[in-house]
C-alpha cells in the first residue's frame, strides 16, 4: 500500500519530465538541441509564482474549474495500476467511474471556456466536446472487449498479473490493434498533432489551447500539470497493455531473480522492480513515438478528424471480432 503510494507520487512528479521527452524528440528529429529536460518544472515554478488576472465576465466557475480538473485526474490516477502492481483503489465497475470522472473534469474546463464570453473559446469547446464524444465510443468498445475476455470491470484486474494476455485467448494481433487504437485516443484526448497542434495559437487550429486562453498564473500552472498527468495516464494504459507481451516474449531480459526470500534483495522486491523498469521503458518509448508522429504528420483538417477516430474504431472492432470466440 505504502509502496504503491510512493510509486504513484514518483510518477506524478516525473510526468513533466516525461512530457519534455516529446519536445526533445521533435527537436532531435529536426536537428535542434531542444528544451532542457527540466523545462516544464521551471515553467510550473514560474507560473506558480505569478499573479492572476481575471476578466470581467467570469464567475467563480472559472476559478474553480482547473482545481476540479486536477483533482479529478489525481483521483483517476489512484485507480491506475503501474506495471503489475495493483493500484491504490479499485472496485468492481471502476472503469465507468474513471471515465465519467474524466468527463467531469472536461465539463468544468468547457464551462470555464464559455464563461469568458469569448467566441474563440466557444469554438474550441464545441470541437473539444465533439471529438471526445467520438473518443468515448472507442474507449467503451475497448472495455467491452476487455470485459468479454476477463468478465471483470475493474481496471486493475485487466493489467495486474497480465490477465488479459496470459489467462485469456488474446494473441498478439488484437493487442497490437488495441494499442494503436489507444494511441489514437491518446493523440485525441491530449490534443497532439493529427488532431490539434499544441504549439500554435491561431484560432483555426486550436482545440485545447483555445479553452485556456484566458488563464494566467497558478491556474495556468495547474492546467499544465493536469495535461501532463493526463498524457501520463493514457500512456500508462498503453504501457500496461503492452507490458505482459514483452515479459512473455522475453525481448527485454529481466533482471535475474536472486533466490533470496528476505531482506532488500528478496524476490518480493526484485521482481516488481524489474517489471517497473520494463514499464518505464515502454512508457518512455510511447512518448518518443508521440514525438515522432508529431514531427512526421501535419495537423488534419477538422473535417478529417472524425474519420481518423473512426479508423481507430474499425481497429477496435476488428480486435473484438478476433477475440470474441477465440
Amino acid at each position: 500500500m505504502m509502496r504503491q503510494l510512493i510509486l504513484l507520487l514518483i510518477f506524478i512528479i516525473i510526468s513533466p519530465l516525461l512530457y519534455a521527452i516529446i519536445s526533445r524528440t521533435k527537436a532531435f528529429l529536426v536537428g535542434k538541441k531542444g528544451i532542457p529536460f527540466l523545462f516544464n518544472y521551471y515553467t510550473l515554478i514560474k507560473l506558480f509564482r505569478k499573479n492572476v488576472i481575471y476578466s470581467k465576465t467570469i464567475t467563480p466557475i472559472f476559478k474553480v474549474a482547473p482545481i476540479i480538473n486536477l483533482s479529478a485526474i489525481l483521483l483517476v490516477l489512484m485507480f491506475l495500476p503501474l506495471g503489475n502492481l495493483s493500484p491504490l483503489l479499485s472496485f468492481k465497475g471502476d472503469v465507468l467511474f474513471i471515465f465519467y470522472l474524466l468527463t467531469l473534469g472536461k465539463i468544468f474546463m468547457v464551462l470555464a471556456g464559455v464563461d469568458t464570453g469569448s467566441s474563440f473559446e466557444g469554438m474550441g469547446c464545441a470541437r473539444e466536446v465533439f471529438f471526445s464524444a467520438l473518443g468515448e465510443i472507442v474507449l467503451f468498445l475497448i472495455f467491452i472487449m476487455f470485459y468479454r475476455l476477463t468478465n471483470q470491470l475493474e481496471l486493475s484486474s485487466y493489467f495486474v498479473e497480465g490477465k488479459l494476455i496470459l489467462h485469456s485467448k488474446a494473441t498478439l494481433i488484437p493487442i497490437i490493434f488495441i494499442s494503436i487504437a489507444l494511441f489514437v485516443i491518446l493523440l485525441l484526448e491530449n490534443a497532439r498533432v493529427p488532431v490539434d497542434d499544441p504549439l500554435t495559437h491561431l484560432e483555426l487550429t486550436m482545440i485545447h489551447e483555445v479553452m485556456i486562453l484566458d488563464y494566467s498564473g497558478p491556474d495556468l500552472g495547474i492546467i499544465h500539470l493536469t495535461s501532463q498527468l493526463k498524457m501520463f495516464f493514457y500512456a500508462a494504459l498503453i504501457s500496461n497493455l503492452l507490458m505482459p507481451v514483452t515479459s512473455v516474449m522475453s525481448i527485454v531480459p529481466i533482471i535475474p531473480v536472486m533466490p533470496v526470500t528476505s531482506g532488500m534483495f528478496s524476490v518480493d522486491v526484485i521482481l516488481p522492480f524489474s517489471q517497473l523498469i520494463v514499464f518505464t521503458a515502454i512508457l518512455i518509448s510511447v512518448y518518443v513515438i508521440v514525438g515522432v508522429v508529431e514531427s512526421s504528420m501535419g495537423r488534419y483538417q477538422l473535417k478529417r478528424v472524425p474519420k481518423f477516430v473512426l479508423s481507430s474504431l474499425v481497429l477496435v472492432v476488428l480486435a473484438t471480432i478476433l477475440t470474441w470466440r477465440g
Partner: peptide, 22 residues
C-alpha cells in the same frame, strides 16, 4: 456512452449560453 457526451454538449451549451458569458 455516446449519450453521455451528447447530453454534455446539449446541457453545457444551454447552461453556458444562458447563464455565463456576456
Amino acid at each position: 456512452a455516446f449519450l453521455g457526451m451528447t447530453s454534455f454538449m446539449g446541457f453545457i451549451k444551454a447552461f453556458s449560453f444562458t447563464f455565463l458569458g456576456e
